[in-house]
Simulated assay, not measured.
Amino acid sequence: MRIVITGASGNVGTALLRRLARCDETHDIAGIVRRPPAPLDGYRAVRWHSIDVAEPTAGDELATAFDGADSVVHLAWGFQPTHDTEYLRRVAIGGTAAVVDAAHRAGVGQLVHMSSVGTYAAGSYGRRVDESWPTTGISSSPYSRHKSVVEAFLTEYQQHYGDAAVRIARLRPGFILQASAASGLLRYALPGYLPMSLVPLLPLLPMDRSLCIPVVHADDVADAVVRVIERQATGAFNVAGEPPVGRDQVARALGAQPVHVPSAVLGGIVDATWRLRLQPVDRGWLDMAFTVPLLDCARARTELEWSPQWSATDALADLLTGVAHHAHTSSPPLRPRSVIDLVRRSFTDGLISSRHLP
């Protein structure tokens, strides 16, 4: 099969390339990224196209890259700069519109869109929901709002074109973790002046005791994507590991003492420090952590014969192992995290939460 992957060098994309390399058949794989990685390791057997899906010219470039594709896997998304929500909107909503339009014009057989637990509405925290739960998002989170808008756009596209529409599958994973993404994830989540090595040394974890979130390893998400492609499946699929991760599990993995701090207090601190540019994560991410439901994955188990090979707690431990060892890959999004480089770029290009491009 010819498979084209947008965002192929990021967290999920890197895991998906690993998974495709283990397939019995050899696939023709193309990667769409803003900054192509060096042809090393898992990035070697990929034909790379440098396309920024947020640009007005992306549609025509994508249509050319999609020509002859059996499946397009749309992973490209923006997480920073959190202070430039217009850019994040162009990547998420504009980029997805360009991908869908290009796939339609190129006659692509199937589009696999990476949605998220963040697309789900509030109202069932700590309880499991299936794919019928409303996808209206969490209003305080730009990430969640954009996931919700994109889901509605995909539905409108399918309704408008009917049988002539590209067949679409939507994966809705929990929070996706893996060791090799440690540097990339903490580049976006940790203030640039703090080294990664401090994370495993935290003596206390100030967190609301009610925390209960769905977590999944990137390898299990990648396996679900491959199963969707192999079966040419359509519709929405929840994917998450078990058991759900709570505050005490996070504290245990860190070797820290949990201390109860109400989520409202934490939210105020996160919001104030974000507005002061002291750290790069907006309050919406914390609100999601204390609002999104757990995931009922029965449909993925039944229709895809999918089951997670990593428990949620093992996925968290894998990430923290990566943090301890400064794990990274050769791709630009997952490159080594350097405090010196982050501080230098903060002066030359602006803070990661504010600069034009992360």
Rank of each mutant, 00 (worst) to 15 (best):
T135R: 12
A76H: 06
A92D: 15
T119S: 15
P173A: 04
W133H: 15
V112E: 08
F175D: 12
S140E: 15
E151A: 14
V100T: 12
I93T: 11
Y161V: 00
D70R: 09
A106E: 08
P173E: 08
S140G: 05
F175W: 13
G118H: 05
G107I: 04
A121L: 06
D101E: 15
H160V: 02
R172M: 12
S116T: 10
Q178I: 01
A106P: 11
A106T: 07
R128M: 05
L154W: 02
A103D: 03
V117E: 13
S141H: 06
S116D: 12
G137H: 08
H104D: 14
H104Y: 06
A179G: 14
I138Y: 02
F79C: 02
S115R: 02
L171A: 05
S141G: 05
R170Y: 00
G78N: 06
L88E: 10
S132Q: 12
Q159T: 12
W133P: 07
A102E: 07
L177H: 11
G174T: 03
I168G: 04
S140Y: 03
A102F: 04
E131K: 09
V149D: 15
G123K: 11
G109V: 01
V91M: 08
Y125F: 15
L177P: 05
R128C: 09
A98R: 02
R105D: 12
A164E: 15
G118D: 12
S144W: 03
G123E: 13
V99A: 15
G94F: 03
M114Q: 12
G95A: 11
S124Y: 01
I93N: 11
H160I: 02
D70L: 00
L111R: 04
A97K: 11
W133E: 07
A69D: 09
S124L: 08
R89N: 13
H83L: 11
A97G: 07
H160M: 04
Y161L: 15
L177S: 04
H74S: 10
A164T: 08
T136S: 14
Y125T: 06
G94L: 06
A121Q: 14
T85E: 15
T136P: 05
E151K: 03
R170A: 11
G68E: 12
A122G: 14
R105N: 09
L177I: 00
Q159R: 14
S116F: 01
A169K: 02
Y161F: 13
S71I: 11
G137Q: 03
D130Q: 06
F153P: 00
V108T: 14
A165N: 04
P134F: 02
S140Q: 08
A106I: 05
Y161T: 00
A122I: 01
L171V: 07
Y161S: 02
V166N: 10
Y143A: 08
L75G: 11
G68T: 07
H160R: 14
A98D: 10
F79I: 13
S71C: 13
H160Y: 01
T119L: 12
S148D: 05
W77I: 08
R172I: 00
L111S: 08
